[in-house]
Structure formats: C-alpha cells, structure tokens
C-alpha cells in the first residue's frame, strides 16, 4: 500500500530523520509512535507532500509520490487530518465536508457561475454525500453550525468526516486523540475501526498508548529520527529497546 524507502530529512544541518524505511499494509490500522522529537510529525509531513524529503522515496500503491503537490494526493486516494484540527472556521459544518468532496467533483468556474445543469446535479450529489459522512461520524445534527463554534471533540469528528469525504484508500491521522476526553477517545477508537472496516487503510501518529495498543494491527516505533522497531502491539510492548527509549535510559 504505502512504502517508505530510506527517508532522510535534513533541516539546515539538523538531521530530523535518518534513513527510515518501513511499509504500511492495506486494510490495517498502523500506529507510528515514539518519544517527543522522534521525527513522527516530520515523517507525516513528508508522506503527505507538505515537506520535500532530502533523500528517499515514498511509494504509494506502486508509484513514487515524492514531490507530487499536496493537492494531487487526494485524487490519488490519500488524505490526512491535522494535530491541531484545521477546519474552515468561517464555513458551516456541512460546507466543510462538502469541500472534502472537492476532488470527487469537477464543475469549473464557468459551469458554476452559469449554473450549468450538470453543475446543479453535481451540487445536489455533493450535499447528499456530505450529509452521509456527517451521519457516519455522528454529528449530523450540527450540520448548520459554523465550524469555528464547534467544541474541540466535535471538531475532530468533523475533520475525520471531511477527510473521509475524499473517499481515500489511505487516511493518515496526526494525533487524533490529542485534546479528547476519555469518553471521546473511546468513540474515536470505534470510529477508526469502522473506517478500517470500510476497507480504508489507517495510519496514526499517536501519543495515547492505550489507544494505540488497543486498535492498531501493527506499530512502528521511531526514536531520534530512526526506526527503532516494528511489529504487533504485543511484540512492541515486550521490546526492550522500545522500553528503554521511552524510559530514557541515557538520562
């Protein structure tokens, strides 16, 4: 599904990632974990096209996607969410999800201004599908609320609905449980499983160990810009190197 080969990232002389390789298997939930400063977010930004890596390749479904502009990845079937939820604050909840369908619709500037018949049909379809995704994450009753007025937990759900509206085959979530209370985290775990059951591959970078151990099929551990280990949750929990890294044996 997704393969990282020898990813190295250097920021002005500082090596943030050093020769990281691993692969993500289709239809699984994979967690990427590691102590602070391990390079998780950097890796995430490279995979999703926001940073350009210094060396190495990202292969998505057999083709090299390094250097492809961010906006083309959605059409290829890859989408992400953000650690500090990036909603379109001035738009309604429903409109946010409708933007998620952007890559799955194509009426242009002129068709839209002149309300061409196909643009009207498409608009109707976008609206209906957006409603469905709101139902999927369970916030349909909030459709007409302005996004910036949502409580954080609901905002997280909206961001996932918006990402799912792109109909991705791979969804990457950057710390989805950050800022959620324990009840919301339980809901999130359920939702992530539901997403996997739709046949969507999930990758999450996460701090919440309980969540990761609970829902992930496989886990990759990063430390100091390098891959430390990978395996099932059980294997990772028993790995002495991982334990040492988390306890900080050099301190």
């Amino acid at each position: 599904m997704l393969e990282l080969q020898g990813i190295t990232q250097i920021f002005g002389g500082v090596t943030a990632l050093n020769d990281v390789s691993f692969s993500i298997h289709a239809d699984q939930i994979t967690g990427v974990i590691g102590p602070n400063g391990a390079g998780k977010t950097t890796l995430f930004n490279i995979v999703t096209g926001i940073y350009q890596q210094t060396r190495g390749q990202v292969i998505f479904e057999g083709s090299d996607i390094s250097g492809i502009p961010v906006e083309r990845l959605a059409a290829k079937g890859m989408v992400r969410t953000f650690q500090n939820i990036e909603l379109f604050g001035q738009m309604t909840v429903l409109e946010n999800v409708m933007v998620g369908l952007h890559s799955k619709s194509k009426s242009g500037l002129f068709a839209c201004s002149f309300k061409a018949p196909w643009a009207i049909t498409e608009e109707r379809r976008i609206r209906e599908e957006a409603h469905e995704w709101l139902r999927f994450v369970g916030i349909e009753q909030l459709a007409d609320v302005q996004a910036s007025n949502l409580p954080f937990g609901k905002g997280r759900m909206l961001e996932i609905a918006r990402a799912m509206a792109c109909k991705p085959r791979l969804i990457l979530m950057d710390e989805p449980a950050a800022g959620l209370n324990s009840q919301e985290t339980v809901g999130l775990a359920e939702l992530i499983r539901k997403i996997r059951d739709l046949g969507v591959t999930v990758v999450l970078v996460e701090h919440d160990m309980e969540l990761v151990m609970d829902i992930c099929d496989r886990i990759v551990v990063l430390n100091l810009g390098q891959k430390l280990a990978e395996g099932t949750p059980r294997e990772i929990q028993d790995n002495p190197e991982v334990i040492a890294a988390y306890l900080g044996d050099d301190e």
Binding site: L87, G89, H102, S107, E123
Partner: peptide, 22 residues
Amino acid sequence: SRIGRAFRAIHDAEVAARVMGV
C-alpha cells in the same frame, strides 16, 4: 458552488484545503 467553497476554504486554512484536493 464548489468553487466558491474552495475559495473560502483557501481563505480559512490553505494547507487543509490543499489536502482536500483544492
């Protein structure tokens, strides 16, 4: 329309809009 929404999305959060394929 979808184009108008995309404009507003760029306005509010450009990176997120691009992730959505805008």
